[in-house]
Each structure stands twice: as C-alpha cells, then as structure tokens.
Design a protein around this nucleic acid. Structure first.
Lengths: 152, 152
DNA sequence: TCTTAAATAAGAATAAATCTTAATAGGGTC
DNA sequence: GACCCTATTAAGATTTATTCTTATTTAAGA
C-alpha cells in the first residue's frame, strides 16, 4: 500500500497528465472539469454522475448535475475516462485507463478492479480476427461479494 | 448451418423447455410471455425492449411496451434470459444461456456472440477467490466491425 | 487588458423505465 | 364445460436518468 504522501504525489502527477491531455484535446482547464476528474480519479467505486455530483457539491455547492454529465461525456469522448459496461440504469465511470478487469457483485453492484496477466497474454480465437479491428479485450466476473453472502 | 426444418425444430424444443421452466417458476403461460420469449430466442442481435416491442407489434398490435419491459424483467429475475452489459442507455437482452462471450462494435453497437474454450478453461487469479462466490466469467471484446471500418 | 469561443448554471425538455388501475385470462376446481 | 381466483395485461400517468436551451461566465490567446 502507498502512504499518504505517496498517494498525494501520485494524484498530483495524474492531474498534471490530465491537464496536458486536456490541452492537447482542446479542452479548457476549468475548475469544474479539473475537480470532476480529480473526484473520479480518487474514487475506487466506479461512481455514477449523480454520485460524483453529490460528493463534489460538498466543496462546490453551485456545481450543476448537468455539468457533471456533460463533462463525463466529453472526457469519455476524448478517451480520458471510461464508461463502465453494466446492466444498471445509471451509467458508471472510471478514470483508470491501465488494462484491468472487473469483478461485479450482482446484489450490491460493487465493482472491483483486478489484474489478470494470463488473460491479457492470451490469444483470441481465430474466427474473431476477420470481424474487424479489436481495440480492447476484458474479462467480467460476476457473483456475490462476501458482504452480500454474509447478509443472507 | 442449419436448414429451415432443423431451425424450426430447435425453436420448438426451446419453446417446450421455456414452457416447462415457466411452470416450475410459477409463471403463467400467457400468449404475450410466450411470444416475447420466442421473439428474443430467434433474434441474434440482442434487442432492446423497444426493438422487441416494435417487432412484436406487427403480429400483436395491442401489445404494450410496459408488458415487454415487465416480462423481460421477470424472465431475467427467473434466470431465463439475460440483460447484456453495455454502456448504452437502452438495456439489451438475450435468450442464449449457454456459455459464450461478446464482441461489440463501438460505432454501430452490434453485438456478436462467440465461443472461447481456452478462456472458459482458464483459472482465475488467486486473489479473486477470497472475494466471494464467482458465478460467471465472461470476456468482452470491443472494437470496430468491418462494416464500420469500411464506412469511414 | 480585450476579445472570443468554450463552458457553465438553471431550469425546461426528452428518453427510458416503472407504477397505478381497471379489465382480462390462465389454469385449477367442481 | 362453467366457475373462481389470482396473475397478468393495456393504457396512460409517473418517475428516473439524461440531454437540451438560453443567458451568463470564464479560460486563454491576441
């Protein structure tokens, strides 16, 4: 695990990278955009727009929900964040862009990231290759987390 | 590929299995329920509730959209159909319950099923096992299908 | 500092899904 | 086959999630 100082430095470098990416993408460095990204980048629970808005409102009381939606959509479009594929009604997001996979609790909808090098290294079935251009390859595991198992 | 007669027989046996499953689940065999399932079972495009409703209305003009939504929800809850995990605003469904994986075009949102035995046989990373009870393990590939690649 | 286009807040509007209610229809019982 | 009971349905109202409209503000380049 990282200590507080290391975590802080990591975030600072992520924010610096984000600012650079925004400039290259032609996006202005607005306070709202920076804070929305920062909140998402520090969250580990793949929050929805509403959840982010609720959290950010603590420190930015005038932030509108629409701005959160609009910002998430534009950052997704520029490839700076990702919309998580779920079956839920509210869309959920993540800032993590390194290769990883998801473990989803079908009861509480918690989503956990995990690494799986063996999968990343595996070759695709041959029939797939003629389909088009594959851009990403991910695993989704579903089940019940231990908390939900206990809660029965 | 199957010929017309084989396809017809396959569907008949699926419908028989579905009827049995409904009875075991305590669901009445209503005309609407049977037709909604039949339509989904013969579709290969992972349709949304609205798409199913549009198709079914050709032969069932009084079918309400609400019934399609309600039926899909109850069949999902009984494990007879599956809600496909996408990032789209409209939920999409499939009747296929055999193990398979998805190939998704990020431009036209076409979803193709495929088999991947190597993946199915692979072992999960150790850290995962303590998380809870894993019920399913699937791969999602994303990219651009050949039609969309050509259309640029 | 000035300018300009992009971004924002607020509330209206739309889209997707669910709820309410009265009517209908499986499917078990006689 | 007629009857009954409850699940299911259609229709339209409602809720929830997201997007649009418009007037105002602000980042960032001249």
């Amino acid at each position: 695990m990282l200590n507080r100082k290391e975590t802080k430095e990591l975030l600072a470098s992520r924010m610096a990278m984000f600012e650079q990416a925004c400039q290259q993408a032609g996006l202005k460095l607005t306070h709202q955009r920076l804070e929305i990204f920062r909140e998402l980048a520090t969250a580990t629970d793949h929050p929805s727009a509403e959840t982010l808005h609720r959290r950010l409102r603590q420190r930015m009381p005038t932030l509108s929900l629409d701005t959160v939606y609009r910002t998430l959509a534009s950052l997704e479009q520029k490839g700076l964040i990702t919309r998580v594929k779920t079956g839920e009604s509210q869309a959920r997001f993540e800032a993590e862009q390194r290769q990883h996979h998801h473990l989803v609790c079908e009861r509480c909808h918690e989503i956990i990231d995990f690494q799986w090098q063996t999968f990343d290294d595996s070759l695709l079935p041959d029939e797939i290759l003629q389909w088009g251009r594959i851009k990403s390859k991910n695993a989704i595991l579903q089940g019940l987390c231990s908390k939900c198992l206990d809660a029965v």
